[in-house]
Write a protein that binds this DNA or RNA. Structure first.
Lengths: 340, 340
DNA sequence: TGAGCTTTCGGTATCGTTACCGATAACGAT
DNA sequence: ATCGTTATCGGTAACGATACCGAAAGCTCA
């Protein structure tokens, strides 16, 4: 009664099968130096006992668990969720397992080395590589397999990002071509490269069309619905309100449509709204949202693909891997008949 | 150059601080038998090196990591995401860390012992307890801290679930009181207790009102948008179509509204739609969705709370922990003027 | 028949950490 | 001055798995 561990250990399997732990280990890892009959017997016991080797012990010794880790800071952003979904797809396809780690925000707040600590916690022992989905400057030794998504800066790691500038540019040009001259922008947090790029695209379209950029038409957000509500109310309460609003992401666009609805402003007749992301919901709002597709899921898959490549020894360049964006025209924008 | 481990080990900290690994371990775990000066010195080194102890090694020895695990099968269901969000909240509040594990579906398919295997992988060594968010019969030794959410059956574990039957009953009675006599149902997978309970509530409301239950008004779904599209099209293409549809979850209700829109059926004038979940999006569809609130986030928090209780030695009963539901009346339902 | 090779397996060291035991020094009390 | 007590630390053995080495048995071939 000394050993009342709830889980079965390799030792128990070995005893039950009448072989050594080494042999069980060999069976587990599919080595070919096991007699067929022995292998079968061991496998049968494994199934009967519902045994599976402990990730921790296995990883500590072998440093290869076929598991990749995802560090995520904010589970409430649907962007993050979609990314994880994409990662999951690739991971499943490549027969890896996935571990998503939400680190204690309070515990790490203000710690400049938190990324290194998180990596140390999971490194080698549990996961073979890590994808960061978090708006933070990553500060790490560069020789450990790490890929970032939608980073805060162009850094020393492979990063997956969309062609944000171009996407926003296309969207705003589309609005301008529809005749809009007062185009509002609800931006994302400037801490994120993607938000800065999208604002740049907005500016570039204005610049090319010879239109001024009006500071009162900009509201800073953070890609969240809540914050965008505030920005939307602000822009739509302006004495001379914008005829179109480009939201930095779909979530923000939904907020704009919600506020417009509240204020009795009709979309698209009185206000054109354009989003960014092409989240699944965007097709089913009323009216369906015109938006810039950046296939977030693909970003996740791509990141996972790069990481697995790296893990398996193939070289991966430290640079921005850009994924294309494209304008999805639905029904939330309309030509502006005014002084065009 | 023999030891080119990327991460710092406790040994490195010990050497740098001029103490033994035991002492560093004591500092790490906040023991009081360390001199103040030594503690400070060690802590400084730890910060400088960005050291954090490996979850795997630590857990293997001490069997208490302050980490809880969540096993999730399908990341594409927003229900699951919301649950995880709730778990995360509680976990953060109690200063635990969270690990979400998506196990390889292909690898486990058809394995009757997969839950035991997953637990074995994570058990003790990495996490202190596990929350299952997966529609599966859980088959486990009962002495390991496990809580399930929205289980397939009332089993031998603490499980968190909503008052589904009552919620669905209330919703359908509301429709009947509005004058509807042909109420369609897009159900969830019968493998889930919640889906069976909701269908039961639907039946009960009909029974109490003396209305027959028409088999052609039932379409089986699985809580997913995609599948619900099929069911919705089926119900709305009926020669004598329902005047109201109760969807087993919001996601399915969105599908109904989408199809109705496609077919030129106006909601709520021509068709009342009611959902279940009260997901954030449901308030912002057009029209805003009338639905049954089951505060999924709270379900997650409650599950985490129970699990942590269990882990910390307080007793937790093996039973269904029911969370209340309530009808949220918005604008997707209307009185049916017909032969009432 | 024996040398040499292959197949199959067991024993031992080890991964990074904590638990446990015991050693040392400092200090107060008698 | 001696002893007991306390504060502080180091050494060693695990945790559960895999890597590596080498042993035993079976086979081939001269």
């Amino acid at each position: 009664m000394k050993n009342q561990s709830v889980s079965v250990r390799i030792q128990d399997v070995a005893r039950a099968a009448g072989v050594s732990v080494s042999t069980v280990s060999r069976v587990l890892n599919g080595r070919d130096d096991v007699a067929a009959a022995t292998g079968q017997r061991v496998r049968k016991i494994i199934d009967e006992l519902g045994y599976s080797s402990s990730l921790a012990a296995k990883g500590m010794r072998s440093r290869h668990n076929h598991v990749i880790g995802v560090i995520i800071f904010d589970l409430s952003l649907s962007f993050c969720i979609e990314v994880v979904r994409g990662i999951d797809q690739m991971v499943q396809a490549q027969a890896y397992d996935l571990i998503v780690h939400t680190s204690n925000r309070a515990k790490h707040s203000g710690d400049p080395a938190w990324e290194r600590k998180v990596v140390a916690q999971l490194n080698g022992s549990i996961v073979d590589g890590i994808i960061f989905v978090t708006p933070a400057t990553i500060n790490l030794p560069t020789n450990y397999p790490v890929v970032t998504i939608d980073p805060s800066d162009e850094g020393a790691f492979p990063s997956v990002i969309a062609t944000n500038c171009k996407g926003a540019y296309t969207a705003v040009r589309y609005l301008i071509e529809l005749g809009h001259r007062r185009v509002g922008l609800i931006g994302g947090s400037p801490a994120l490269l993607s938000a800065r790029q999208r604002r740049q695209g907005y500016a570039q379209a204005h610049y090319e069309a010879g239109l001024p950029i009006l500071p009162e038409l900009y509201a800073e957000g953070d890609y969240s619905y809540q914050t965008a509500l505030i920005g939307a109310r602000q822009l739509l309460s302006l004495p001379e309100r914008p005829t179109a609003i480009m939201a930095a992401n779909d979530q923000s666009a939904f907020a704009v449509m919600g506020i417009a609805n509240q204020l009795g402003i009709r979309v698209p007749q009185d206000l054109s709204v354009i989003g960014f992301d092409n989240t699944p919901e965007s097709a089913y709002t009323t009216p369906p949202l015109t938006t810039v597709d950046q296939s977030i899921v693909t970003m996740g898959s791509r990141a996972a693909e790069l990481l697995i490549q790296w893990i398996e020894g193939k070289p991966v360049e430290d640079r921005l891997y850009e994924l294309p964006t494209r304008l999805i025209v639905r029904a939330s924008c309309q030509a502006w008949p005014g002084h065009s």
